[in-house]
Write a protein that binds this DNA or RNA. Structure first.
Lengths: 206, 206
DNA sequence: TAAATAATCTAACAGTGTTAAGCAAATGTA
DNA sequence: TACATTTGCTTAACACTGTTAGATTATTTA
């Protein structure tokens, strides 16, 4: 009899443990949204989830572990956006354009996550490599670029080059807007963004 | 008699004060080159110049003051490079290209300063605005772009747009190389860089 | 030489990430 | 039910961080 109850309580305990883990991540992101990455500290997170700091170390190895998990979650979100907008378009060209615009939108609707993921105005954790979620998004771009260039039989290296050309200009443009806010107007950004994307797509078969 | 000596010693004192100020900046940059921006601390700087930490506060308001001065110095260096390479070319097109390549080279020959100035992998100090040295370099680009576009009588806004298009792609490309080292090969970078610069220059009259 | 001033250091405060020890409550066992 | 054990959580501490105030030492001035 007690056995059954114990089993149930064990599950309950594991459930609230997962909840606490999620609470830690939520609290962290909330603090960052309020006062920026600089202001994030273990004790503040603990305060927010109404525990003391050492508790966090039962859920994450250290502070960097929290950051790593947040970048992972960011990549999951971004990937979801990619898939959603890709499904909305037929031609690879339109899909590619839509995905870069989704990338752009993500940077501003999840400003803090973007800063963490791509190191704008932020201490970038070195462990970002070997995140499979990040690779998945990259692969989507590779595939699309390859498809568009199919008649010219592109090498992996050329596809890679096109991808980074895209990434550079869009990340650079986002950087201006996130770090030096207000240097460019919204209409300007839209102009630069569309020009750049379509320009590169047009030049993709060079 | 003593008066003359006193005057001399006062000058000497001011000279070694300026030396100490420079030593602080040198020490800071040295530490960053050895162990990165994260590792920079007031006490480490003090150790290196063989003083104790509070001394530094007689030369700089706080740590951010040191960072601000280093970004200023970085901008001075960059501006010097700009002027040097511009003098080496005749046509505005060649000058513009040479300046962006100088920008690129600066990012890697003064990696740490670039990180500080443009917030790659670094806590970017917000006080960067209103640095006249930074404005001067920007103006050089504006002038060149205006000159190249002279027949189409560009508005300030369009020139601004072209400038940020340049900056975006080059800063983005530098970001990949400074933050995610080794993602792209050197030859690839050269390819992307030249392609991008000449592509944008060619499209500058659109 | 004695007083005044400048240069420098020590000590401290509040904050950071992180770890070890301890307490108290819940659980398992007899 | 009584004892033992594990679990959850906290307090305390360590080694750092930036920064400031007060004491101390050295130098200059009278």
């Amino acid at each position: 009899m007690q056995g059954k109850i114990t089993m149930g309580s064990k599950e309950r305990i594991q459930r609230i443990k997962e909840e606490t883990r999620a609470n830690i991540l939520d609290a962290a992101l909330e603090i960052v949204k309020e006062d920026g990455w600089q202001s994030l500290s273990m004790r503040k997170i603990a305060d927010k989830i109404e525990y003391t700091a050492p508790i966090i170390y039962e859920y994450f190895a250290n502070k960097e572990g929290i950051l790593l998990e947040l970048t992972r979650l960011g990549n999951v979100l971004l990937l979801k956006d990619f898939k959603a907008v890709q499904a909305k378009h037929k031609t690879p060209e339109k899909q590619l354009e839509a995905m870069w615009i989704a990338y752009w939108d993500f940077a501003f609707s999840h400003k803090e996550l973007y800063q963490l993921m791509f190191g704008v105005d932020m201490i970038c954790c070195d462990l970002t490599k070997s995140l499979p979620e990040a690779e998945a998004g990259k692969k989507m771009f590779y595939d699309l670029i390859s498809t568009i260039m199919t008649e010219s039989e592109p090498t992996e290296e050329i596809v890679c080059r096109k991808y980074y050309t895209f990434w550079s200009i869009i990340h650079g443009l986002i950087s201006i807007n996130l770090v030096r806010r207000g240097s460019t107007t919204d209409e300007m950004n839209q102009h630069i963004l569309r020009d750049a994307i379509q320009g590169i797509i047009k030049a993709i078969n060079d």
